[in-house]
Amino acid sequence: MSGLESYINHTVSIITADGRNFIGTLKGFDQTINIIIDECHERVFSTTSGIEQIVLGLHIIRGDNIAVIGLIDETIDSRLDLANIRGEPLGPVVH
C-alpha cells in the first residue's frame, strides 16, 4: 500500500515542479500520484512582505507536476504568523 494512504483526509503541503506551494486536505490519489486536494490554498513567499495565502478551492494536481507531498501538523501550522514570515520563493525544477 502506498505511503500516501495514511495522509488521506489530512492537511498536506504540496510542492510542485514549478516551485509553488499548495496546502489543503488530501482527498485522493492514484498510481501516477495525481491527487485531489480540497480547500486548497497557495502560499506565496516573498522576501519583502509576509506570506500571502490565496484561496483556490478544489484542485486535481497532475502527478507529473508534483515534487513533494508533506503531512502538516495542524496545531503547529495554526501557530504560524504567516504575515511576518519572509522567504525566497522556490524556483522551478531544473531538468
Binding site: 510542485t16 514549478d18 482527498k27 485531489i36 480540497d38 483556490l56 478551492g57 478544489l58 484542485h59 486535481i60 494536481i61 497532475r62 507529473d64 507536476n65
Partner: peptide
Amino acid sequence: RGSTIKYLRIPDEVI
C-alpha cells in the same frame, strides 16, 4: 492532451 496538464481547478460542490 492529458500529459500537458499541470492542474485542474474544479467547483467545490463536485466532490
